[in-house]
Design a binder for these strands. Structure first.
Lengths: 230, 230
DNA sequence: ACAGTTTTTTAATAATTTATTCATATATTT
DNA sequence: AAATATATGAATAAATTATTAAAAAACTGT
């Protein structure tokens, strides 16, 4: 999952910094604009993945900004609205915002909204089928299926994620720690030998499946999904 | 993947040891400073890749240290803050910290943060293909492959790293000690003759591969990957 | 919340691979 | 030629991985 960039637009720099803080704590990159004009400019130069947009702004107000950006792009926009504003006024006006939060807001909630909006709009991550195929092997991470020669093989999720990760970058050697970070996640804490065991089980399942590829050990370094030259 | 060095700054040596334990279990090198002054000194002498910095410190407090270091470098800094501190106070003051954790913290989480910060700050050299080519020889350190005339030759990692290192700077002479430092790593303790043996095995594998280059001994000095003029 | 089931992790040890040392032959420098 | 340095081959040591079984953790359906 690539890091997402959030464009924060608000004339109150305390709010900007607060949002930035929470968002960056959550792994987002952030850029900040303090007025409507620079918001549009930064949208063009920074190419953010999502925009948090205040309505009350100098130079161009949030609505104008929203409209201007909508002409250029379908980037998700979350409006930051004053308490009094009504829904219809915000979303119903066909401005094309994707969500809104009312001030004063809870920063955590804003982050949650950002994630939610990204989840449902980013067509790339969750809506694209995560499938890798090599010869008689199909690894389908959308359905969590491992298919060998057309036959589904019952495979625990970690194993599947592991082989998917390896096969997604064929020939690249991954160290155990790299695999733990990238497949298990940063939070994982425990020995790295568990990778070996998962590899072993995968090999059991995939033995003699194909002579086009193999799960190869690179001693002292790690493992790779190797595609044999012909 | 080069080993990263973490500078831990805290006056409570229990905390330092705890962090050290977890970080080293995860493959990081660590150095420890117990007050602000030595923190700045150690930053200069040890050149860490990332700093864990407590705020309450003798001599110089964490903010002063942070500011001092920021004048010298963009090294990532994670602040260790007491529970009460407010966010804005920490990041809003433009101290330039990259992240923070509040005490009491979960050591695992700190390690996770360190990794996360390193990942987003370090100029992702992970995705760069490490490949060197000369004539019929391809040394691929991403896949850990040595390819001669299109055929992969099974090669142990040290040998591969050695030839990669030499071939990355053709014609440059490396002393054995230099090679031990740069390929084996500073931790290595042992005789330097082992370099000879590795060179020998590489020559076996690469004999007559090409008349464009050769692994040359420079008597009393070291070795070089020499490219012949035409 | 519980008992049964599956998955994941740990731990121990056997097997393998890689790295280092050592002894000696060969080569280079002075 | 003497002294110093390197090449080579074999033996040893060290480190890493495979495999197995068992324990722990995470799930499942009730």
């Amino acid at each position: 999952m690539p890091i997402k960039k959030v464009l924060i637009v608000d004339d109150d720099s305390n709010i900007c910094e607060l949002l930035r803080l929470y968002l960056e704590k959550d792994g987002f990159k952030t850029v900040i604009a303090n007025d409507g004009e620079s918001a549009v400019n930064m949208f063009n130069t920074e190419e953010p993945d999502i925009i948090l947009l205040d309505i009350m702004l100098p130079k161009l107000d949030g609505w104008q900004v929203c409209r201007a950006i909508r002409k250029l792009s379908d980037v998700p926009i979350i409006m930051l609205t004053a308490k009094g504003e009504t829904f219809d006024k915000i979303l119903g006006l066909d401005l094309g915002a994707d969500d809104y939060v009312t001030k004063p807001f809870d920063s955590k909630e804003v982050v949650a909204r950002v994630k939610a909006v990204l989840r449902r709009t980013s067509g790339n991550d969750e809506n694209v089928e995560k499938i890798v195929k090599y010869d008689k092997l199909v690894i389908n991470l959308t359905n969590y299926e491992l298919i060998v020669d057309g036959v589904a093989i019952d495979t625990p999720p970690k194993e599947l994620e592991l082989i998917y990760h390896l096969a997604s970058n064929p020939n690249k050697v991954y160290s155990r720690n790299q695999l733990l970070d990238e497949v298990w996640g940063f939070e994982y804490y425990g020995g790295s030998r568990t990778v070996d065991v998962h590899i072993k089980r995968l090999r059991e399942k995939l033995e003699n499946v194909s002579d086009q590829w193999t799960i190869k050990t690179v001693c002292r370094v790690g493992y790779k999904f190797e595609i044999k030259q012909s």
